[in-house]
Design a protein around this nucleic acid. Structure first.
Lengths: 201, 201
DNA sequence: GTAATTCACATACGAGGCGTATGTCAAGAG
DNA sequence: CTCTTGACATACGCCTCGTATGTGAATTAC
């Protein structure tokens, strides 16, 4: 049982470091986040960091993975609450846009993440958000609601549109009205994928 | 006239530094680019750098501004060569995607730029690329070809879609076939903006 | 039961890199 | 001819990262 105790203590320290990193990376950005400060903030030193993670990048990997999972979960919920698959796709887009309003997500997942870790499409967890969107599109094609487009291409461009919309909204002086415009435009664009121009229920 | 000589010499050094920075930032990334190496590569020192620019960020600003201008010019040409305004919009999208295949543009404009300088929509030169897209959309609305959508919203989402398409293509193992898929998907999405589902010539 | 090993960190060290303060030399001003 | 200005170069200090080494507790071996 003593071994279990040590294992959980280590897991707690890992969690502490990740939590501290989320804060530090979100508020100061990856480059300006000091590992000394970050670790000291949770009563540890850089020694713990380099023992639990590969390096500074490794810590960012862990943070990104955690946030990515949370985002995917929220997307899944948004889609499941929609009354139809097509509205589910639109709901995913809206949810994605709204998520990107979170400074943490914006900074870590949309700015520093890609810059430091490279293209998100090659992240492990295989970009859970994209996977979800693709699954929805694939189902819509099978139902004959969406044109037989390339699923990955459509998913990526749709997510890309949502992403830029999110950044726009986040940087706007008047986020509320801009959010409405962004969501509307997203619907119009998405409707280009429809087999019939008229949107289904 | 001696004053002119000094002025041009300074301009040349500025240009040298910017050129060196484009190379260094593109190949090593902003964070890993050493100012000592960068300046030494053109026979100068960091002294010249901090005299001509505010700091490392300032140099990146200058580089970004230069590349942004070049990109806008290429977009303009792509649109002007198209036989119609609508096809011009699609041509812009394709050109944007193809440009992002350039590692320099990808790294500096799409990855490090946003991470270090913040949201591109607030860059000076006011994001020339977006301006061009918006102008085209506005004209298409006036001609009754495109739905009366919010111009900025449509422009941003369209550019965002092109951007993510570009990143996808750039990171692909087989860029050629992926490029086709991406351009196709872009057209489908864009057609969502059309008043009539049938695409005009 | 004790000696040895492993583990999960802490501490210490070295190597850059950035920004700034200071020095320098040529060019114009007066 | 002196003085100032400008365009750099040189020198310095501070910070940060990664690694090498130390350490005490926990586990294992005997």
């Amino acid at each position: 049982m003593a071994k279990g105790k040590r294992a959980t203590a280590m897991a707690e320290n890992r969690a502490k470091l990740i939590r501290a990193a989320r804060k530090a990376f979100a508020t100061q950005g990856y480059a300006d986040a000091s590992m000394d400060e970050l670790t000291a903030a949770v009563g540890l030193t850089r020694g713990a960091l380099y023992h639990n993670f590969e390096d500074k990048k490794g810590l960012l990997w862990a943070v990104v993975e955690q946030i990515d999972g949370e985002m995917a979960e929220r997307l899944r919920i948004a889609r499941e609450q929609a009354p139809s698959l097509w509205l589910g796709l639109l709901a995913e887009g809206s949810a994605y846009i709204e998520m990107a309003l979170d400074p943490e997500i914006q900074r870590i997942m949309l700015l520093d993440g890609p810059a430091v870790l490279g293209d998100p499409s090659k992240w492990p967890g295989e970009n859970a958000c994209l996977e979800i969107t693709m699954r929805t599109i694939r189902a819509l094609i099978e139902q004959g609601i969406v044109k037989p487009v390339d699923v990955e291409a459509a998913g990526r461009l749709l997510n890309g549109a949502a992403l830029s919309a999110a950044l726009w909204v986040a940087a706007a002086d008047d986020p509320k009205s801009v959010l409405n415009k962004a969501v509307d435009a997203f619907r119009e664009l998405a409707s280009g994928l429809l087999r019939d121009a008229r949107e289904p229920a």
